[in-house]
Amino acid sequence: MRRQVPFIIATVAGVLMLVQFFVPAHGMVRMQTVFTLYTRIIGGFAMVLGVASLMQVSWVRVKRRADNWPFALTTILGFVVMFSVGVLGGFFIHDPTTGKLTWSAGIAPDKNPVFGWLFYNVYTTMDATIFSLLAFYMASAAYRAMRARDLTAGMLLGAAIIVMLGRAPLTAYFWDMWLVKPTDHQIASLGEITEWLLTYPNTAATRALMFGTGLAALAQGVRILVGLERPYMAGTGD
């Protein structure tokens, strides 16, 4: 019974969702909305579980003075500060006429000045910093990728150089000036070559991957629906 009930629930829900995709009637659309709502509600409760897990792991590290425990302490402090400012601070509004903080039934976080300041000046800044690092990682990855070890790697290198130069305004300008105009457009512009590479070979390869992924996802869905794979029961089948 412990194995059959979750299986029946999963199969019934799966079939329902599959059918509703093709049935646009109002009842089916409502059903999908309601199911999505349930998922969001469960997700909200799960967030409490997640935060509790993170705090527990961090607290144990601090308590035991494990390696790199100051990082764990920073996590706890960050959580406490943002939580306090976001939740408790949300109940006070700065009244500009009296210059005092007044109690309110709760305001949106974006109207909470302290929370907003911390979010935009601390979190967003650090987030952008990590994102910016991507440029350096790209440079190092490109250096490793662009080595013509064999024919296919050489083709990759050639295509990459063309696209890079085609996207750079200066090289595209000189290509046009030295090659395209003197030959009266007998030679394609660098931009056109770049577009051709991106539109045809690149799109064809991408679609082939998407095509395979779609069918593989369908096969995975069938395996789950008929119970050959039961990851929701932390197992892989019978």
Partner: peptide, 14 residues
Amino acid sequence: CALIGVCITAAVAL
């Protein structure tokens, strides 16, 4: 289960 699913689909839709 697939058959049950189809039946329940119709019931829930109605």
